[in-house]
Design a protein around this nucleic acid. Structure first.
Lengths: 213, 213
DNA sequence: AGACTCGGCAAACAGTTGTTTACTGAATGA
DNA sequence: TCATTCAGTAAACAACTGTTTGCCGAGTCT
């Protein structure tokens, strides 16, 4: 009827909705279970769909897992990017940057518990494709952090390899902080944040005195 | 016939043998799969035993998993204990202690790949009892390290809480080093060791300069 | 020697599983 | 309007699952 561009897409929208239902159902089930123990029927049942319907969207459960990985890190990636962008605005104070980074991680875990749990659980899980997807995404993450670190005056004269190594250390510490937030209830949250900050500061101090006694 | 104490135990020895077969089969299967995806029949089949036989040894697959956890950390615990005992013999040189610790971890991973992989995989896995068993064991581990750190002259005047926090950081870094060894092939082993040493040294330097600019 | 313990087995139970098949019916494009 | 596309379905497939049952027979104790 309408000759505008809004006519087409009802079909695709419905498909996307089902796809979303599958992803959500999977993510939900994976809060209490491992991906290698998940079943196609289980997911479709939770998504209110016929078992065969699954294969209209994913060839595999691993494929669904990989998509969840991408979604998991997409928004975290954005948040960290924003936090790093504040770097200049914080007057180049590393302490403030550390505080901000921990805040961002805490907020992210609070809003996306299921995604974070999924990542922690499958990072070393039994499904190779998912493991590799997570590793690749974390590598991109470290790239970003390394770029930000290189801009700090403190790293003047540091070889790129060492900056990269440092960035990986920071990422690993932040990931560990995230899983610690997960495991701690809301009451232990402050303590976890305190520990995470101290760890990061320890690294920061070590970095400043790296090239002297 | 014999009135010595060696007569009894044939029964128990056979039982232990079957139990061992189950544990070994389980550990083997868990190299490519997650505990929450493992099946009783799968394990008994791999152990050359009837499905019902499993229940003579374990009530659950989780129970088998918990035993694997205990076995996993028993020998690592011993190795670290030995390494820490060398502390005095190494002339209180923190650098040497770091090198030694990384060596110990590398050797441990080399000899007990399957156990280490199992720990990394189930540390955040879908089976609560196993997760908690691993967490408890790692806490004991950190106790030991904290005890050793407190003896170092460097930590004179440090409050116990901070020493403890430091110990947990070291343990986490060593665990991460272990899983990194796993994922790196034999060719990347040296690189992983180098990275691990640098990370630990960074902490060490940070600790020395913690209470000054 | 005889009674007894108990690790392991075969069989049966009622489900579950992944995947393919042919189909239906609504959204689509001409 | 009519033919086409295609997301979702129901049904069937053979194979698999965890757990219980009754039983056997070798090791153990007296």
């Amino acid at each position: 009827m309408s000759h505008s561009e809004g006519g087409t897409g009802v079909r695709q929208a419905q498909k996307q909705q089902s796809r979303r239902a599958l992803l959500d159902a999977g993510l939900h089930l994976l809060e209490r279970q491992n991906l290698s123990g998940l079943g196609v029927r289980e997911v479709t049942r939770a998504a209110g769909m016929s078992p065969a319907g699954f294969y209209r969207h994913f060839p595999d459960l691993s494929a669904l897992g990989v998509v969840l990985v991408e979604e998991s890190l997409a928004n975290l990636h954005g948040m960290i990017r924003a936090a790093l962008a504040e770097q200049g605005g914080l007057g180049d104070d590393p302490e403030a940057l550390i505080d901000r980074a921990v805040e961002v991680v805490a907020a992210h875990v609070g809003e996306h518990r299921a995604y974070v749990r999924f990542l922690a659980r499958e990072r070393h899980g039994g499904v190779r494709e998912v493991r590799e997807a997570i590793a690749a995404e974390l590598r991109r993450f470290a790239d970003e952090v390394a770029g930000a670190l290189a801009l700090q005056p403190v790293s003047a004269g540091w070889p790129a390899g060492e900056v990269r190594m440092l960035a990986e250390l920071y990422v690993d510490l932040l990931v560990m902080a995230a899983t610690a937030f997960l495991e701690a209830g809301p009451e232990g949250e402050a303590e976890v944040a305190r520990t995470a900050r101290t760890r990061l500061r320890l690294i920061s101090v070590g970095r400043r005195h790296w090239h002297d006694g």
